[in-house]
Amino acid sequence: MVDLKIQLGGLQMKNPVGAASGTFGFGSEFEDFFDPGRLGAIFVKGITLKNREGNDYPRMAETASGMLNAVGLQNKGVDYFIETIFPAIKHYDTEIIPNVNGSTVDDYIEVTEKLNEVKGIHAIELNISCPNVKEGGMAFGVSCPSAVAVTEAVRKAWDKTLIVKLSPNVTDITEIARGVEGAGADAVSLVNTFLGMAIDARTRRPKLSTVTGGLSGPAIKPIALRMVWQVYHAVKIPVSGMGGIMNAEDAIEFMLAGATTVQIGTANFIDPQVSVKVIDGIKAYCREHGFDRVSDLVGAMEG
């Protein structure tokens, strides 16, 4: 028997595999393919204070081993989430973790205060790394003082596990990680998407309505892995790692580099059942390599 249970800050998860925000809807989209309750956590799609329509079409461009997106946090707002969506998904036997976004620090606080009142939500993921919005978003996550300020403010409004999602679009990700650790984060998640762009040479136009967008998928995996490893060594709080995970082996690499839990993003679009395959694959790996507890994998890279 392999013990898959794992602790992310104060949050107890039944296994280390989560679905990454913005790539798994609210979970119900995947019900035909598997029981979302099998996941360790569902990081539901980004939530803002008010309804947001997101960016204009086209919002997506395929790239070599990856994709660019510029969805821009389309969602119906936090009240709609609390009143309509959460009641419909809270029965899943997993942790539902809202991904909190804002244009201003006050926005973040207000969304957090509302979520803090909801029974059954044990953690939030503070997104200070969305590259696809004009105001706020990544702007908070690319400078240390603003990342610290928003984390401190949200910390005061949130009683349970606070995960801060970091942007890879920085010179030194460990500096930001240490900053938010000091500001009260219980865990960090990384990486969000890399700022990129694509041009259609035939039409000489940008492929995205916003020109730039966020790169995800296997193309970013080696950089994401490096950042997880660096942050693991820079902070004491646990890391939730992601970026290009396509299978169990990728996920195990992230754990060996220091990730306590992993998140699966873009791979959900390629194989809607990938998450359960990753859970089963991690279990099989532990059995084969003599790990009784999945937590023993964390940071177990040799040398």
Partner: peptide
Amino acid sequence: ENLMACGIGACLCCVTP
């Protein structure tokens, strides 16, 4: 026939105004 990534409503890449 919009461009799509997931095809199942998870990514919101395929929207039309």
